[in-house]
């Protein structure tokens, strides 16, 4: 299986690669159009700041490539947020697969949310064998409000969408590559889609 991890010069791609290796797969980190388009699965990782990440993505014309992918695509953390329409972070315009506006957490609770929280209302093959209220590792200051594409929600003062899906596009706010064996199972489920 060919697994492409989109490289736009940001993000801790090494952790994703290692997690794939622990599952017995290997991935290639690439910004090459042909390699991304011909891959069986595409992972779109990301940490960092939304507007500067989008700038790098546009410079490499990756936004157009991602938008037209037909195989399963998994956006992780910032990668998930960039698949949405916009983000309050740096007033970024996203790739726009999901008609969702990413918002900043208010300061009623600590920002960033950092640590282990549960995912619930699980509604996707992505969560095969994952129990309701399983713990996942999250670290983020911006979030997707609960919406029609939500396949999991998390409570941080209120319920927000911690995973979303539309057609072949999947997005998770948590880090499956850092969320113990349950996180690895979610990655495995994605690879077996």
């Amino acid at each position: 299986m060919q697994i492409a991890i989109i490289d736009y010069g940001a993000g801790n791609v090494q952790s994703v690669l290692f997690a794939l290796e622990r599952l017995g797969y290997s991935g290639i980190v690439t910004a090459n159009k042909k390699l991304i388009e011909s891959a069986d699965k595409v992972i779109f990782p990301g940490v960092g700041e939304a507007s500067s990440a989008m700038k790098m993505i546009r410079e490499k014309q990756l936004d157009e490539i991602i938008r037209n992918l037909k195989q399963p695509v998994l956006g992780i953390c910032l990668g998930m947020q960039l698949l949405c329409k916009s983000s309050e972070e740096g007033n970024a315009t996203g790739i726009g697969i999901f008609d969702i506006e990413i918002k900043r957490f208010s300061n009623e609770l600590k920002v960033p949310q950092m640590g282990w929280n549960t995912i619930t209302n699980l509604k996707s093959k992505l969560f095969n064998t994952i129990k309701d209220e399983e713990f996942m590792y999250l670290v983020h200051s911006y979030y997707a409000p609960d919406n029609e594409f939500a396949i999991a929600t998390t409570n941080y003062g209120f319920h927000y969408a911690s995973a979303i899906q539309k057609d072949n596009f999947y997005g998770v706010q948590f880090h499956p590559e850092k969320s113990g064996s349950a996180g690895e199972q979610i990655l495995k489920n994605f690879l077996e889609l």
Binding site: L109, Q113, G115, W116, N117, E133, Y156
Partner: peptide, 8 residues
Amino acid sequence: NKKMLTKR
């Protein structure tokens, strides 16, 4: 206790 960010 049931559904919230946990202490690390």
